[in-house]
Design a protein around this nucleic acid. Structure first.
Length: 450
DNA sequence: TGAAATGTTGGGGCG
DNA sequence: ACGCCCCAACATTTC
């Protein structure tokens, strides 16, 4: 058995991976390679068009079969299917497996046999189907070949970032299968029912933070499912936390279900009336959002956490998304692209679902008129302003009472905290009240065409 | 997995 | 003592 990773250069129209993802992939490959070496093998790295690379490897090694795990993004699905055909035509045995998901996107359907478009009934159907098979443990030994084919050096993939954010990322993540397993263990050590409460507080480590590990296949959702159920069996009692957490795994499944059945949603709204939405075109506003300089502390804290660590707390993702789409009325695609490029857990399915949900144009979406108030959200979920102070050092000296909306603070409070609005920290780039009215007015325009 | 506007109720101040 | 008004506090509706 020869483990191979191909850095594919397929011209399949898929979005080029972002820098944060690339960074993770680099570390993850290096970690996988080390693990394989420890059990006497290794990982062969190659670059080029998938099919051509595989055919060449087969020629070099005399391999008779190729196995891989299924992928679900629209563009790569097509590529993988072409690869399969071309291998089979050459008389090679192929087999593909499911490692990424608990439920295949096509095996859950409504009574009419159609895909679900609302989460709750979808998840109910999943739970009813249940998961019977147990995850297969990591093999202790693998039959290795006598002679190894050449491998290109990992560095030749040029996955390491050009900008210096490696230090910020490294401090926050422990990569690889081992890191993923550790993180799951740590997460499950917390009281299970704590999750339902803590997960919404960005200042607290209350979420599992497994998303990048899941995305890169360092841990499978089935492993998580079983570990959570085991914890429940060991210490029964209040299971709301566990159910809430598994529901998040469910959203990930749902995202893949939707992307499989509605592949156009990566770029186009699922609800077609939103194609006519009067989005603004405002480059400086987009830049202010990206850089965390909107003047709304909770938005800026989130955007800076993202830039620094390649990750953002889920509650804050919803807040910054609402701000981009409703307060600035910039197309959700701008947000999706930015997240794609900066998140270590960038995942086409989850990202697409998340942004369309926020914009109100997707499946099971928040109605468009549901506009987040960035100040209220901040006060509600970060009451002490700890999260704000952590990511906005220029506001750290402001007391909790004023840090959520510095422009409302008395002059002497600002002065004492060393805050000079418009100088050390921007004034709010829009008035939320006015922005909300404008967003609702814009919504009225497309509502008529429904 | 909202927030604001509007409606309702009930206690208390006050003439 | 009584009715009136004010306005929290909560509930409902609307965006």
């Amino acid at each position: 058995m020869i483990p191979v990773f191909i850095r594919s250069t397929n011209d399949d129209g898929s979005w080029p991976s972002g820098e944060a993802s690339d960074w993770w992939l680099h570390q993850s490959l290096s970690s996988l390679s080390t693990s394989l070496q420890k059990i006497g093998g290794g990982l062969v790295l190659r670059q080029g068009p998938s099919a051509a690379v595989l055919h060449k490897l087969i020629q070099e090694t005399g391999a008779g079969a190729v196995f891989w795990n299924r992928r679900y993004e629209p563009a790569v699905r097509e590529t993988d299917s072409k690869v399969r055909t071309s291998l089979q035509q050459a008389g090679i045995t192929t087999a593909d497996f499911n490692s990424q998901l608990i439920f295949e996107p096509w095996e859950i359907a409504t009574k009419e046999g159609r895909p679900y478009q609302v989460f709750t009934p979808y998840w109910r159907a999943c739970l009813q189907k249940g998961l019977t098979s147990k995850p297969i443990p990591t093999p202790k030994t693998i039959p290795w070949p006598e002679v190894w084919p050449d491998s290109v050096p990992l560095a030749s993939f040029q996955l390491e970032p050009t900008r210096d954010w490696g230090t910020g990322l490294k401090e926050h993540w422990n990569l690889g299968c081992h890191g993923a397993a550790e993180r799951l263990k740590e997460f499950l050590r917390l009281p299970v029912n704590q999750y339902a409460v803590d997960r919404d507080q960005p200042a607290v480590i209350g979420t599992s933070r497994l998303s990048p590990h899941l995305h890169f296949g360092e841990i499978s959702p089935r492993t998580i499912w079983h570990a959570v159920h085991q914890t429940l069996t060991r210490s029964p009692g209040d299971s709301t936390g566990a159910e809430t957490y598994l529901k998040e795994i469910g959203w990930r499944e749902f995202a893949h279900h939707l992307l499989y059945h509605f592949p156009q949603t990566t770029d186009h709204p699922l609800r077609s009336e939103f194609a006519d939405f009067p989005w603004e075109d405002n480059e400086p506003a987009l830049r202010a959002w990206q850089r965390g300089m909107t003047g709304y502390p909770i938005v800026d804290a989130g955007m800076r956490e993202l830039w620094k660590t390649g990750w953002m707390h889920n509650r804050v993702r919803m807040i910054v998304a609402s701000f981009l789409v409703k307060d600035l009325r910039l197309h959700w695609r701008h947000g999706a692209r930015w997240f794609w490029n900066t998140l270590v857990d960038a995942d086409l399915a989850s990202n697409t679902l998340g942004w369309q949900w926020s914009a109100g144009c997707g499946a099971d979406a928040a109605p468009y008129f549901r506009v987040f108030n960035p100040v209220l959200q901040s006060q509600k979920f970060d009451p002490q302003g700890e999260y704000l102070a952590r990511w906005l050092p220029e506001l750290a000296a402001l007391p909790p009472k004023w840090i959520h909306a510095p422009w409302t603070a008395p002059a002497d409070v600002l002065k004492f905290a060393g805050v000079a609005l418009g100088k050390t920290y921007p004034r709010p780039m829009v008035d939320h009240g006015e922005a909300r009215d404008l967003a609702l007015a814009a919504f009225q325009k497309i509502k008529r065409s429904v």
